[in-house]
Each structure stands twice: as C-alpha cells, then as structure tokens.
Design a protein around this nucleic acid. Sequence first.
DNA 1: TATTTTTGTGAGCAATCGTTCAACTACGGA
DNA 2: TCCGTAGTTGAACGATTGCTCACAAAAATA
Lengths: 203, 203
Amino acid sequence: MGRRQLWDQDEVLASAMRLFRHRGYLGASLRDIEEATGLHPGSLYRTFRNKDGLFHAALDAYNERVVQGRVRVHLLEPADPLAGIRSFFTSAIETGAEPDPGCLLTNTAVESFTLPETAAGVHHGLAAIEGGFADALTRARHRGDTPPDLDVATTAAHLLALYQGLLVLVRAGLPRTTLHSVTDGAMASIGSLRTVRKQDDHE
Amino acid sequence: MGRRQLWDQDEVLASAMRLFRHRGYLGASLRDIEEATGLHPGSLYRTFRNKDGLFHAALDAYNERVVQGRVRVHLLEPADPLAGIRSFFTSAIETGAEPDPGCLLTNTAVESFTLPETAAGVHHGLAAIEGGFADALTRARHRGDTPPDLDVATTAAHLLALYQGLLVLVRAGLPRTTLHSVTDGAMASIGSLRTVRKQDDHE
DNA sequence: TATTTTTGTGAGCAATCGTTCAACTACGGA
DNA sequence: TCCGTAGTTGAACGATTGCTCACAAAAATA
C-alpha cells in the first residue's frame, strides 16, 4: 500500500558511514549527507527521525558489517590465530584508500559529545573486537603458540588498547615504519601477560 | 603608546584549552569561547587572527604546559623510571575531574580535518611523549631493570600507541578495572621487545 | 476509475555559525 | 591639554546549520 521506496537502505547507510568516518559527526552537514547519500531531507527525516538517528543507524551498520566482518576474517576464522592477530593490525595500516578514514568507533569515542545511544554503540563494537582477540588467544593457547598460563582476558584488553592507539597514530599520519613497529610490539607482547602470582617471577 | 591589555594571555589560553578538550574544535563555538575566556570577538580576532589561530595557540600551550609537564614529572625526573612509566599511565585514568576531558593531542589527531599547522602540533606533542618513554626506558636499562638487549625505540613507540589507546578507552567510558589491566599489560610488555635477531629464541 | 496511503521533492524556516567593524575607552608623548 | 595609538565592546553581517512542510508522484485499495 502506497508508493514504494526508491532507495536502498543498505546503500544509504554505507555512504553515510563513509561520510561520518571522513568528516566526523559535527563535520558532516545535512547538505553533505544529502550529496553523499542522494537522499533529500524529507525522506531522511521520515526514515531516521533526525541527524542523530541517521548517525546511530550508521554506527550500528558499521558494527555489524565492518567491525564484525573484520573480527571474523582476522580473528575468528584463521587457522593460525597469531597470524590472524598480526593481519588484523597490519590491515589497519595498509588501508589502500588515499586519506585514511579512520575507525568510526575510535572517532566516535573521541568526538563523544555524550549521546547515550552512541556510547552504547561504541561499547558494543569495542566489546566485539576484544571478544575476537580473546577467542584468537584462547585458540592460540590450545595450539601451544603461547605460554600455557597466558592471561587471555588481560591480553585481549591490552591488544584492544594497542589497536585503538594504532588507529590514533594512523590518523595522526605517523610514518609507516613506526606503525609497523607497533604491530611488531603487539605480537611480541603476547606471552608477556601471565596469570597473576603471589610473587613476581624473574622474566 | 595606547591602552594596556586587560587580560592575561596564559589564562585565556588555559580556558580555551579546557574548552577544546571538552568539546573539540568544531563543537566549541565562538560564543562558547567568549563565555569561557571572557574575551570579546574583537579582542580575540585582533590577537589570534581567527578561530584556527586560537586553536593553534591553545594546542601549542597544551604541548608546552600539559604534555611536557607530564613527561617531565612522570618520565624524565623519577629516580625509578619504570614506576614513573606506570604512574604516567595510571594518572591518565584517575583524572579526578568528573567527565574526563581527554587528551587534546588524541582528540585533535582523530578530529583531524587536516589543518596542516595542527598536524605539526600533534606530531610535536606525540614525539615529546615518545621521547619521554625512550628516556625512561634507557635509564631503566642502565639500572638493570630491563633485559640488557631491550629495543628502546620500538618499545617507546609501543608504549606511545598503548597510551593513546588507553586514552581512547578512557574517553569511551570503559570501566576502571579494564583500564588498569591495560596499564598492567603495558608494564608487563616492557622487556618483551628485544633487538631483532636472525632466529627467534624460545620465550 | 476514484480514493487512500506512502514516498519523493525542494523551497524555505529560525537559529546559529565565524567574522567584521565602527564607536568607545584608556594610556603615552608633545 | 590635546592628539595619536592600542585595546575593548557588542551590534550586526552574510553564510550555513538542522529541520519542516506543502505539494507532487506513485502504488494499493475500493
């Protein structure tokens, strides 16, 4: 009943996502959004309520498609979990695309402006990454690729922070060599996090 | 010659810095700036040329006062360098202030919007932090607190990334326990980065 | 076919943005 | 004391912001 929607919601969210990654929430005006998505204000406000609503939808789509996709490909599926973790880091450096758009989670966490719905979306995405690390580390431990007493939870949080920091440095435009040495450091640091003992052992 | 300036430039830059840390560049309007600094538009534009100029001056002031101050207190001066590194991390978590304003370097690197003068300011500040880590690590190595073949440069870059990542997670509002385990991970990972060999040793 | 319902279109709203500028105020030197 | 100079003030500018709404177009129902 009624006229059919002429545009594809997935495509619109994909271009909105692209725009927000490049320009941020405040930096993307509704004229920019109109140009990027091809959607006129009326349709946009009918569907997403307002700019916040569109952003929220784009963030959700980013979590579902980009984040979970990357987690699956690099952290959950590879037969060699440590190699997967490494490629998760290096793929964030070698983006190919000319000016790196940055991660929408990182950018949103920092731009913040404390929209509660947005905070929940960021937490959700970060938890997905952390969970992916934890899964890969557990599998690596079972394969004997790490010390048997590796503290999986702590190491996963450690890698999450390192990954977010890497994205900041990528965004800051630091040289590739520096960024790759961060990746090397990430890999080397796996194994240094053991379960806490009463006494700290030597090395 | 002429009327005397009624306001103190350091105080104005301090409040501008505070405002930019909370709201970001785009999120801080000139009306906000006027309210925060007490400066009327005319005086502001006479002194700083425009909003970019004020932001640039505030970023420089942040580097000189906050960043270099923190680097000195936690990384350069402490007799125990590793304890200093730890306090450098924990002091970023326990800010005391209710809503954490975040680090202006991190926020600016992510908000980006590629203002060339701004990029230089960010690089400068990040280099100061990395340099502080390198100094502390070198001293720790001389004291015998780390393996003698510690790769100081790589570890410093590693800690810089970890620190920036921690600030993102702080800004995202992750629980204290998670943040502190990141710090623990940072300390534990020092020592895992040796100078590269032909063969990788066990452990 | 006539009617109802949904969607597309874009001109235009009030509010706010960064910025300018003319009038005003205080100081030093003649 | 009068003038030149530097600083302060705040009204107001054009541009842009997020957003609304009256109208046109297309599909489903009668």
